[in-house]
Amino acid sequence: MRVIEPNFEIMDKIKGEDILRKIELCGRVCYKSENSITSESARKFVKNIIKSGHESVLEHEKITVRIICDRGVTHEIVRHRIASYSQESTRYCNYSKDKFDGELTFIKPCFWDEDDENYRLWKEAMKQVEQTYMKLILCGASAQEARSVLPNSLKTEIVVTMNLREWRHFFRLRTSDKAHPQMREIAKPILNEFSRLIPVVFDDIE
């Protein structure tokens, strides 16, 4: 049994200024103002379209992120409908096999310290889940049958592709104080990295 913390990988090579220039070119078609494009105009244009609510122009660019988190978090991620997803399948992944080192991996709950009684109880429960899962496999259950005992805390990987407008929607919902703590734990770092790589587009979201 392993316990890990969530993490992510941006799968695209992002060039923020190129993204802004493409968005500007697409957006200016609406106003037939392509002649106003200069080497310095993209940032101001994109900032203005966001301010005016003309966010459909942002849909011309997308970003793909590989997220490692628990299955409970992915249940919330996939509620965002304007996106594409590819997720590790508990039907086909047999965790008793060598490529998984014959063990289950769980995501550490961010709301309990390791010396907390709640964390100890959680860890005991995860150990029991692992033992039960492996016994089911030994008794002839298939992976898709044995998965019925797997909990939300099970580590999973999901590849998420959204256009920039939907990423903005995602971050507005999933980094707020109302979001689940484990959702914020992964969404905030992704937002911070997007903000670092792409000027203007995410500056108004905290």
Results as ranks from 00 to 15, higher is better:
1 M>Q: 13
1 M>P: 13
4 I>L: 11
5 E>D: 14
5 E>V: 15
7 N>C: 12
10 I>E: 00
10 I>K: 02
10 I>Y: 04
15 K>E: 14
16 G>F: 12
17 E>G: 04
18 D>F: 12
18 D>C: 05
19 I>D: 03
22 K>N: 11
25 L>Y: 13
25 L>R: 15
27 G>I: 04
29 V>P: 06
29 V>T: 13
34 E>L: 15
35 N>A: 15
36 S>G: 07
36 S>L: 15
38 T>E: 02
39 S>L: 15
39 S>I: 09
42 A>I: 06
43 R>Y: 04
44 K>E: 07
45 F>L: 07
46 V>G: 00
47 K>F: 02
49 I>Q: 00
49 I>G: 01
51 K>H: 11
53 G>H: 07
54 H>T: 08
56 S>E: 09
56 S>T: 13
56 S>Q: 11
56 S>V: 09
57 V>E: 04
57 V>P: 01
60 H>V: 12
60 H>C: 08
63 I>H: 00
63 I>N: 01
64 T>P: 04
67 I>A: 04
68 I>R: 07
70 D>K: 07
73 V>R: 05
73 V>M: 03
74 T>L: 01
74 T>Y: 01
76 E>G: 03
77 I>M: 03
79 R>T: 06
80 H>K: 03
81 R>G: 02
85 Y>K: 02
86 S>Q: 14
88 E>I: 06
89 S>I: 10
91 R>W: 11
93 C>E: 07
94 N>G: 05
95 Y>A: 00
98 D>W: 08
98 D>S: 13
102 G>S: 01
103 E>Q: 14
103 E>H: 14
106 F>Y: 15
107 I>G: 00
108 K>P: 01
109 P>N: 12
110 C>V: 13
112 W>F: 15
115 D>Q: 11
118 N>H: 12
119 Y>M: 11
120 R>A: 14
121 L>E: 14
122 W>F: 12
123 K>H: 15
124 E>L: 14
126 M>K: 08
126 M>A: 03
128 Q>A: 15
130 E>V: 05
130 E>F: 02
131 Q>H: 07
131 Q>Y: 12
131 Q>E: 11
134 M>Q: 10
136 L>N: 05
136 L>G: 10
137 I>D: 07
138 L>A: 15
138 L>G: 10
140 G>N: 07
141 A>L: 08
144 Q>P: 05
147 R>I: 02
148 S>Q: 11
148 S>L: 11
148 S>A: 12
151 P>E: 05
153 S>Q: 08
153 S>R: 06
154 L>K: 02
159 V>L: 08
161 T>Y: 03
161 T>G: 10
162 M>W: 05
165 R>P: 01
166 E>N: 10
166 E>L: 04
167 W>E: 00
169 H>W: 02
170 F>P: 00
170 F>A: 02
171 F>R: 01
174 R>C: 05
174 R>G: 02
176 S>F: 02
176 S>N: 05
176 S>M: 06
179 A>C: 09
180 H>K: 09
182 Q>Y: 00
184 R>N: 15
185 E>V: 08
189 P>A: 14
192 N>C: 08
194 F>T: 04
195 S>C: 06
197 L>S: 01
199 P>K: 00
199 P>C: 06
201 V>R: 00
203 D>C: 02
203 D>N: 15
206 E>P: 04
206 E>N: 10
